[in-house]
Write a protein that binds this DNA or RNA. Structure first.
Lengths: 334, 334
DNA sequence: AGCTAATTGTTTGAGCGTTACCATGGATGT
DNA sequence: ACATCCATGGTAACGCTCAAACAATTAGCT
């Protein structure tokens, strides 16, 4: 690595002259500035980021902690965050909590020593189940800003969410408007904050509809066990099902496959609505109708909020930004 | 952030005493060590990473540059890299090149100023098409180690690859052994080094088989255009197709869907083999047979090679590690 | 012309948080 | 009285920036 010192020696000037010249200081003569810049370019001088960070107490780096990169939603959120951060001159250090509280604690701990200017995170499943957020508060107490997204907790920090309740409320209302009489909700995320909200939206929509006589049916599928078996089971125990709302990323696709296999006509006999990113490529036939999450907007918003927060650190009021969802009707709804 | 200076003031000792005490120096009395450690724990002292990095010229951080996080293979590789790196006490700064040369250049540039100890990367499509690797050589010339994986280039650095040629050679031989007479290869990655190798494996297997009379058929599907249309077209123009080898991550699934729709019996009339991670959850029926890539092993190997390289930086011989693949026969082959 | 005052261009020095090396001072042993 | 040991303190350095000091030139004024 080329340093200011080396440039200074070659040019027979002091280190600070070189520093000022490269920063276009008024104090330095045009002539010197040019000489310095030429040599710097020639030797491909790059200011050492560690020295800069130490001096300025800013790292231009964010810590991003997500539960699972293999989930398409989080992968896309990560993509959006990286894109916007990089556009604004920030780097991101990525940690995957793998849905575990301990890994999440460890990641926050390891990066809270001046490695990052702030965090963007979505909370691990275990953390939500145990409702244990002390490790997060500990960081906030140290005045390191955190922006939570999607899976949030009751903490005073900025947040980016979607209207989970409203989204599944609308989707359920759509199924009702099609005249569906046996609408089942399936989910592999009932333990999560977002899972509960989405389920409540479904329940509320059914409850409000006076013509709908059936009790609501909520099927919990277990990610670790056989998703396909759980869904086959659903068709066995609910042969009259004519509407399915999947509130996670994958079970809607499985339900569609299984329904077609069982001989259901989709969407004539049965409507299915999934939950996903807006333009996910699902190669199903017919194409799955979904509640679309606008993941790029979510990721971008987290970065914007965090940068805002860094620019006015003392403000104590926190923002919760809600990103719009859309119900996109494709081939699995009438 | 609590600093050594603050601890020193509270304990009425010098900064260097505190530093030595925390590092269990022999020079410091047991008694002092204990007092220092207690206060450090109580105030949650964390050594400032930037200061440490500046001093030691080591960051304990890797730059990871991947072309696309939404591709399941790269998402899983990233997961594996993060997991192994974090296990060994390293953080990773993630950059997504989005298959663009310029973003790749920029990412290398931005992080080569002392931000990372080395890079792990897979080359962007545009970079491979233009065969432009000067930006990578520039980093290697500065003695910053790079480990390339999957999509590699002809550079003197460590690499982790799979036996792309051998994998599709084996898969094609399997299709031949089933007695298939019209085997088509489909690919959306013909521009990539790995795409070419895989295609060559297919060609070689056909060529070697004296009973196989047909000319090889290689279908290029364009990711940006309608993949489904290209594949429908394949069935139109090759009605006698009885074997399909997909050498990318997605086109095999699409081909299966379309084949079933066309009324092909799979695997009776038609065998299909895809290319993917070992335990990818594809909810198809029948389940897709695949060449499995052992992505976790690939990611882990990149980290191991990079750490090895850092420990013996002067060695000039470079390692290329080849990770085994498996042909996993599920429901779409006989 | 002769002096101070202002301007310009540069260097010096301190400090960000650490650690490594060397110095210091007090107690102990012979 | 002097060498030896022990516990601790001081200083410099990593690469950088910023305030303050300084030297050299130019301008302003009697």
């Amino acid at each position: 690595m080329v340093t200011l010192k080396q440039l200074a020696e070659q040019l027979n000037v002091s280190v600070s002259t070189v520093s000022k010249a490269l920063n276009n200081s008024e104090e330095i003569s045009k002539d010197t500035i040019q000489r310095v810049k030429e040599l710097a370019k020639h030797l491909n001088y790059q200011p050492n980021r560690m020295a800069l960070s130490l001096k300025s107490n800013k790292t231009k780096t964010f810590g991003v902690i997500i539960p699972n990169v293999l989930n398409h939603f989080f992968a896309k959120a990560l993509y959006a965050i990286e894109k916007e951060a990089s556009r604004q001159g920030f780097s991101i250090i990525t940690c995957v909590s793998n849905e575990l509280l301990e890994k999440e604690e460890q990641s926050l701990q390891v990066l809270s020593n001046g490695s990052v200017d702030g965090f963007i995170m979505s909370i691990a499943e275990e953390t939500q189940v145990k409702n244990s957020t002390d490790h997060i508060s500990l960081i906030l107490d140290q005045d390191i800003p955190i922006v939570l997204f999607d899976r949030v907790a009751d903490l005073s920090c900025d947040k980016v969410i979607i209207d989970d309740f409203g989204a599944s409320y609308e989707a359920t209302k759509h199924l009702l408007s099609e005249g569906r009489k046996h609408i089942v909700l399936i989910s592999d995320i009932e333990e999560l904050s977002v899972g509960k909200l989405r389920t409540n939206g479904y329940l509320k929509a059914l409850e409000e509809n006076i013509d709908y006589k059936q009790p609501p049916i909520v099927i919990h599928v277990n990610k670790d066990n056989d998703v396909e078996a759980s869904i086959e089971n659903l068709f066995m125990s609910n042969p009259k099902v004519d509407g399915i709302l999947s509130i996670d990323n994958t079970s809607g696709v499985v339900a569609l496959h299984k329904a077609l296999k069982k001989g259901f006509k989709v969407p004539e006999d049965l409507s299915i609505i999934g939950f996903s990113d807006e333009n996910v490529l699902v190669f199903t036939d017919p194409k799955l109708s979904t509640i679309s999450q606008h993941t790029m907007d979510i990721g971008k918003a987290t970065v914007e909020l965090l940068i805002d927060r860094l620019n006015k650190k003392n403000t104590t009021t926190h923002v919760t930004k809600t990103i719009k969802t859309n119900l996109i009707l494709r081939g699995t709804t009438k």
